[in-house]
């Protein structure tokens, strides 16, 4: 709370020092935000951005989980995919974006492909590590007690992979929201990124601040109100994550 007050004070001072044209103060920024909120502009563009994010996130999670599992379970899979996942991780996201747009056009399909493409390698790596870390000894224990294959997977294997899955999801979401805005700047006709770019063209710093801060607040909200509680709940048995 104190840090928030200090931040606002520093912000206001900076605004006075560098003029509102370059650093619009908190008042100016929040009134701009309020204006766009009440006009419905923020909700509308935000909905576009969210849809792209969630769609590509779902695709990236699915592809990443399948590849990561294959790599973790099979030596052949590891040999074949290891290198390519690394390559996938190395290529700049800008390249994926350009290629996707050239293939599918400057539309939502192109955007979703670009975002998912950028994101899935890091998810695959997380899942891969998780599957490799599965403790065979616990599975053997379950087998000795004649646990069925399905029960072994649900009660012994999945709980072991869950922390990695969770880490993959959080990490993936972080990548997705950055890339989504970027994609919208480059080739969107709506969405938060597009509006940021628009404000930039108008040199309207208050709007740039307003969009950025709103977006950040929402993302923090998702992190703190959804992901963190899920994690705390799932992993309350672990000694290190007592929240």
């Amino acid at each position: 709370m104190v840090s928030l007050v200090v931040l606002l004070a520093v912000w206001q001072l900076a605004s006075v020092a560098f003029t509102a044209r370059y650093v619009p103060g908190p008042w100016l920024t929040f009134s701009a935000m309020w204006e766009h909120l009440s006009s419905g502009e923020i909700p509308r563009h935000f909905a576009f951005t969210m849809t792209r994010m969630l769609g590509s996130f779902a695709i990236a999670m699915a592809v990443g989980t399948v590849l990561g599992t294959l790599m973790g379970l099979y030596r052949r899979g590891e040999q074949m995919l290891d290198m390519w996942v690394m390559v996938g991780l190395t290529i700049p996201s800008l390249c994926y974006i350009i290629v996707s747009f050239m293939w599918l056009g400057l539309n939502d399909r192109g955007a979703v492909l670009a975002i998912a493409w950028t994101t899935f390698p890091s998810i695959a790596i997380n899942i891969w590590q998780g599957v490799k870390a599965i403790d065979q000894r616990l599975i053997d224990m379950a087998r000795v007690f004649r646990s069925s294959g399905m029960r072994r997977i649900v009660k012994v294997v999945i709980p072991q992979v869950l922390p990695y899955l969770m880490a993959a999801a959080r990490f993936g979401l972080g990548v997705v929201w950055k890339v989504t805005v970027f994609v919208e700047v480059l080739g969107g006709s709506d969405g938060v990124g597009y509006m940021l770019n628009y404000s930039f063209q108008m040199f309207n710093m208050a709007d740039v601040f307003a969009w950025t801060i709103f977006f950040t607040i929402i993302m923090l909200g998702i992190e703190l109100l959804i992901l963190k509680p899920i994690e705390t709940r799932l992993f309350s048995w672990r000694p290190d994550i007592r929240a």
Binding site: R137, A142, V144, F145, R146, R151, V156, P159
Partner: peptide
């Protein structure tokens, strides 16, 4: 069968009761 391994091989996310229940159910 009952099997006692060199290491306890308990499922860390279950309680003591939960671990025994796992075996009973299995």
């Amino acid at each position: 069968l009952g099997y006692v391994f060199q290491e306890p091989r308990l499922l860390p996310w279950l309680t003591v009761r939960g671990n025994i229940e796992f075996a009973l159910e299995s």
